[in-house]
Amino acid sequence: MMSVSSTTASPFGLSPMPSPRCLRKCAVRAQAGAGGADASDKSLEVMRKFSEQYARRSNTFFCSEKSVTAVVIKGLADHKDQLGAPLCPCRHYDDKAAEVAQGFWNCPCVPMRERKECHCMLFLTPDNDFAGEDQAIALEEIKDATSKM
């Protein structure tokens, strides 16, 4: 959680379009596992790491259906790119920017921190019917699940 709040301010969305040459270089680096290929990959990785870490810390588990977890992490990463904070993707907001500033629904949201309630089904308590046994998800899994849509 600390790591997330410390990185929220970094303007991922502002980096200029990488040139083809740069992309190739980044792709090589991504294969080597040393970071994302572009801005959205980077925040996807950040959110993935955060999710694993927070699940372990709060003693919660990912959904038995991993595609749900993958989609939510992708949603958080998208919001982080667009709005600067991982706003919960499972709500409808009149004004997303205002919600980000308010902070109530920035992941981990207040209900999660206070009562372990995550209606997005990212962090499930062990007694939840949908809870799986994993507290880890691979970046490839997320990409696979989200690329189908």
């Binding site: 959904c63 259906e65 595609s67 749900v68 977890t69 993958a70 989609v71 939510v72 992708k74 949603g75 958080l76 998208d78 993707p89 499972c90 409808h92 209606h119 997005c120 089904m121 990212l122 989200t146 849509m149």
Partner: peptide, 12 residues
């Protein structure tokens, strides 16, 4: 059904 593109439970 009201849904959003990156909402996991919406898939279910």
């Amino acid at each position: 059904e009201f849904w959003a593109s990156w909402c996991g439970p919406c898939r279910m």
